[in-house]
């Protein structure tokens, strides 16, 4: 502030002197000297006035380095989301090979919904250091970017993550989803039951994944629209159609009695047809067929719960 005042004063005076000096030097009479002085005073004062009309002399400049230092000195807990982002970006700028910071920034951006940027950051982090966690985040960012579809790119990321660390729940779950979307329920079930088996009993992901898996696997093949109105041939009532489907399922199960997913579908359809005993029987059959596997068991438990809820609603 003091330095600014001094510089402004010096500049103003010097310029005023410079402009008025030809007048002053050639001045012979007092009036001419007065004119020279007048010009000088006018230049200096008018410049000051024009400056003060909109100036804020008390406001210090804020080069980015100052902002950066301020953010670095603050407790991360107190930062607003924007400040956190800037802080992370500053670290990444300083240490372009800091895989951890890159991953943090990537996660932040993903959380903020800026998936394109998030993906770029996570990929940068992975180039420095391949890490199962970061690979998982990359895969999820790709999934979110593509509105929930597990694209081949995302699948590759999840597969790499899964190969590095089998105990991570997300890669296994999404790989299962990818297999499911491709129509391969057996592989999907394998992934899902496998990860549930590996997770500790108290892990919340166990519950989440088994509920989701139970829902997906028990859907009739060909998608839910098979039960909808649109696809129905005109000469068939819904009941006829469902029973045709059940017949098909039962025939299929005779051919492939070890297909657990098919048993699950049967259980669900029977539940819809208000045949809870049949549904339970189907689930019990599935349990036996799966060799009392812990993971599959959890999924079947979830299915059983879901069906019972349906029952109690009706």
């Amino acid at each position: 502030m003091i330095a600014l005042t001094l510089i402004i004063a010096a500049l103003g005076m010097l310029t005023a002197l410079w402009i008025a000096s030809p007048l002053a030097r050639s001045a012979l009479e007092p009036m001419q000297r007065l004119a020279a002085f007048g010009v000088m005073a006018f230049v200096a004062l008018a410049a000051l006035g024009a400056y003060l009309a909109g100036g804020s002399p008390g406001l210090p400049g804020q080069p980015y380095s100052v902002t950066e230092a301020r953010l670095a000195a603050m407790d991360p807990e107190e930062l607003s989301p924007e400040e956190q982002e800037e802080r992370l970006r500053a670290i990444v700028r300083r240490e372009p090979a800091n895989a951890e910071a890159l991953a943090y920034l990537g996660r932040f951006l993903a959380f903020d919904g800026r998936h394109l940027e998030a993906i770029a950051m996570l990929e940068r982090s992975l180039r420095v250091n391949e890490n199962a966690r970061v690979l998982t985040d990359l895969g999820q960012a790709l999934v979110e970017l593509n509105e929930g579809n597990v694209t081949p790119e995302a699948e590759r990321a999840f597969a790499a993550a899964h190969a590095r660390d089998e105990t991570l729940p997300e890669p296994a779950f999404f790989l299962g989803v990818a297999a499911y979307e491709a129509g391969d329920r057996e592989t999907a079930l394998e992934y899902w039951s496998g990860i549930i088996r590996r997770l500790p009993p108290a892990d919340p992901f166990r519950e989440v994944i088994s509920v989701r898996a139970a829902d997906l696997l028990s859907r009739p093949a060909g998608g839910p629209q098979m039960l909808g109105d649109g696809e129905m041939p005109e000469d068939e009532t819904p009941e006829q159609m469902v029973s045709r489907m059940v017949a098909g399922l039962e025939a299929g199960l005779e051919a492939y009695p070890d297909d657990v997913a098919r048993w699950m579908v049967l259980a669900r359809v029977r539940a819809v047809m208000e045949n809870p005993a049949g549904a339970r029987a189907a689930i019990a059959e599935a349990r036996t067929r799966s060799g009392d596997d812990d993971g599959t068991g959890a999924i079947l438990d979830a299915l059983e719960r879901a069906i019972q809820v349906e029952e109690s609603e009706e």
Partner: peptide, 24 residues
């Protein structure tokens, strides 16, 4: 400081231009 100095210099150029017009 850079900003304020810059603002002052613009004011100074304005006044110098006015002086240029009037004196000439």
């Amino acid at each position: 400081m850079i900003a304020e100095l810059g603002r002052f210099l613009i004011a100074l150029a304005l006044v110098a231009s006015f002086a240029q017009m009037a004196l000439s």
